[in-house]
Design a protein around this nucleic acid. Sequence first.
RNA 1: GGAAGGGUGGCUGAGCGGUCGAAAGCGCGCGCUUGGAAAGCGCGUGUAUCGAAAGGUACCGUGGGUUCGAAUCCCGCCCCUUCCGCCA
Length: 429
Amino acid sequence: MLDIKFIRENSEVVKKITQQKNINLDIDKLLRTDDSYRKLKQEIEKLQCEKNKIASQMKGGKPADELVKKGKEVKEKISGLDAEFKKVEKKYNELMLLTPNIVSKDTPTGKDENDNVEISRWGEPTKFDFEIKDHIELGKNLDILDIERGTKVSGYRGYFLKNEGVLMHLGLMMYALDKLVKKGFVPMVTPTIVREFALIGSGHFPSGKEEVFQIANPGKLASGEEIKESKFLVGTSEPSILAYRANEVIDEKELPLKYCGFSQCYRSEIGSYGKDAKGIYRIHEFMKIEQVIICKDDLSEADKQFEELRKIAEEILEELKLPYRVIQICTGDMGAGKYKMYDIETWMPSRNSYGETHSNSNLTDWQARRLNIKYKNKNGEKRFVYTLNNTAIASPRILIAILENYQQKNGSVVVPEVLRKWVGKDVIG
RNA sequence: GGAAGGGUGGCUGAGCGGUCGAAAGCGCGCGCUUGGAAAGCGCGUGUAUCGAAAGGUACCGUGGGUUCGAAUCCCGCCCCUUCCGCCA
């Protein structure tokens, strides 16, 4: 969310960014709603003042008929206006939740992913002097990945990891976790089942709701039991970590807060049925270590943390010796809440291209406003915090890059050095 | 799953229809006292929103209702605690 005052005073800026982010939202309508929201509120407050005065005249003494009558009249007026106010307030809140964050000055303006800008590259696409196999074939031959039985059991986009596939998958998690803990991040195992407010807070709701699996629908079951509240499966531990601090005021001394969340992640992938249909690039569930930083509302501080998050992800890929590039995401490809965003893409030989493995975002106070997370600064003022996040590692997608880049002519796969401790061998196969 | 009791300010906790934005204690801040500190004493100490200000309004888990008037009464929901049962 943005500050409504900011929207009032900079409506042209907000309109422009709404358009640049391809968001279907009428800012003028928001402003009109805000206007009637405030007018109605003031009217109601005036009446409430009257109501309170009448009531206080009756303190102690016996109710005077005349006053009771007057009080009733005021009450009716209030309830009339209140119905109207509730409607306007609801609309206002809906529109506010859809309002996008502004973006950093260096964010490229663009329509879609084709306008993203590559800003750096590490390593060269791996060269092979033999015919390469893709991760599906490698995984099958080495008996570490079974997609056929995965779909048998789980359906489209299902998979099993087996043997060294599992050791590598979990080894990646432990490797990343270990690194982050050493860098001072607080490790967290977070809920993957969350209430709606967490997803509204992170900005995954209301737009993007179809991306999320809902696992409880309010209503009566055939058994007669009643489900009273919706529950959802998170697509990343970010919503859980942020909601962990919802409605809190954090002491400035505690900042920046650095968390790394470990969780299974669920994505419905509705709207991308035909996309990346093969292999384990686009799947319904995966594991991820996510980095989250909560810092004070200072752009240069946030930028520093943002770059730090990026550096950690790069360090991980470099230690895994996987070629990657960093892309700066343009306005049209960015997501409503983002102020600045990089994707890191890792070289995937079978795709003959880089594939997204990390996503790094600075949301400034856009999430903090939704979740009501503040900090108290040295002057005793309460300010909304800034929030940032980046992937540390997400698997099994990263296994595509590892298996394919590390494959050898005989079909075996060399285990990246940093993972050998967990896999227990140098070569698979 | 059964039974009971609860959710009040940074914390503990009183209030159970008007005098309550809310006692008291702790904590915190300022001052007095002191060689300095502790103790003691005095004063202050929630948030949001509208307003230039005076001041208004809202908030006692949350959403409704009753009432001239609700922290207090009634209902839904969320959460917590205790006991029993079941269980990875």
